[in-house]
Design a protein around this nucleic acid. Structure first.
Lengths: 190, 190
DNA sequence: CGGGCCTTTGACTGGTTTCAACTTCTGTGG
DNA sequence: CCACAGAAGTTGAAACCAGTCAAAGGCCCG
């Protein structure tokens, strides 16, 4: 059960068996059905979730009362509301399973002590955070540099699996336009 | 000269005098005139820059051959192209001084060894990176949740100093619309 | 098999961009 | 210190892209 997460970490840092054991003792296994909530808006985020299997979306309710999706996350990715974790305040967003999903939760309250015992894990999380930041920056770049249509085509070619996996209206929300517009894009020949 | 950066770090972690000394030995002081480049597109980013005094912008050339500003940075902020630092590849973007600017460069090549000697600094940078990520996520949220006008008003009220400090066309670029449109927004009575 | 949600399609609306002309500001050399 | 050229900001008109509203068709799940 721990194989996926340990394999992932090994891509970035080296842990001794004892360190791996320490990490695993600090993880909580959780399973969610489709539409279950990992985090509900208004509650404080409990920690970082590593997705073993499944798919989740992170969204908030915008001024027009629509669900605005800000992130998807699938196998071998971490997901959390860093804003809530950083400030300790209630979250403005919701994290919900799109499919049957299994995760490991690394509770925020365990993190500092664990990092003290296993410094390599701090390095690992710093690298993951840097990756996440770069991804967010790239996404901002795409929004400014590409038309809606280009962004849709780019995303489709980058993550073809996703087009199968998530409903169109969620993809439209993530890309920042309406389901109707996405439908028209698909209707157009490439 | 080191006061600003040490004060900033002290807000997040505690360093011994010896550790502070070690850090300072790894910093390179640099001074740039208005319009000088801290990083030019096509070159690999040298490391993280801490701004002691001044103001810089980070931009890339978009498909329409306009300069698309993706970030500003001022006193007591770090700036770098994390994408280039992470991959080691040439940067797609340029970092340029908008004013006379003084910085400390923490060269990427010194980073790993320094973190080994001063683990608290790794914690500090992890926190800074988390903050930067949260800021990027919030910005994405604003883009999806607010109209262009709301985003302009929001930014103006959040960073009133900026409106004085940077030319309008740069602000327009950062906010993702045309200088003409920004001019019209300003003309409207709020 | 039925109901509700998702997707598609059409007509209309409106906000932003584009193009262009004009004015104001800025900084650089004589 | 002034003059002038180029850069930055303003304003108007027209075009266009994406959103909204609405209605119909399709599909999934209970």
């Amino acid at each position: 059960m721990y194989r996926e997460i340990l394999d992932h970490i090994r891509k970035y840092v080296v842990l001794t068996p004892e360190e791996e054991e320490l990490l695993c003792q600090n993880l909580e296994y959780k399973k969610y059905h489709k539409k279950d909530f990992l985090l509900e808006a208004g509650k404080t985020c409990k920690g970082n979730y590593f997705i073993i299997r499944g798919c989740v979306r992170q969204y908030f309710i915008n001024k027009k009362l629509n669900e605005q999706i800000i992130n998807f996350s699938i196998e071998n990715w971490w997901i959390a509301d860093q804003d809530s974790l950083m400030t300790g305040r209630p979250s403005a967003c919701t994290i919900q399973a799109i499919e049957e999903t299994e995760v490991f939760l690394l509770p925020e309250k365990n993190k500092a002590a664990l990092f003290r015992q296993v410094p390599s894990l701090e390095t690992y999380f710093a690298l993951i955070m840097q990756k996440a930041f770069v991804a967010a920056q790239r996404r901002l770049g795409y929004i400014f540099n590409m038309t809606d249509e280009e962004r849709f085509r780019h995303f489709s070619s980058l993550f073809p699996e996703f087009i199968q996996r998530v409903p169109q209206y969620m993809l439209a929300s993530y890309l920042g336009f309406t389901p109707q517009f996405l439908s028209r894009l698909r209707a157009k020949k490439h």
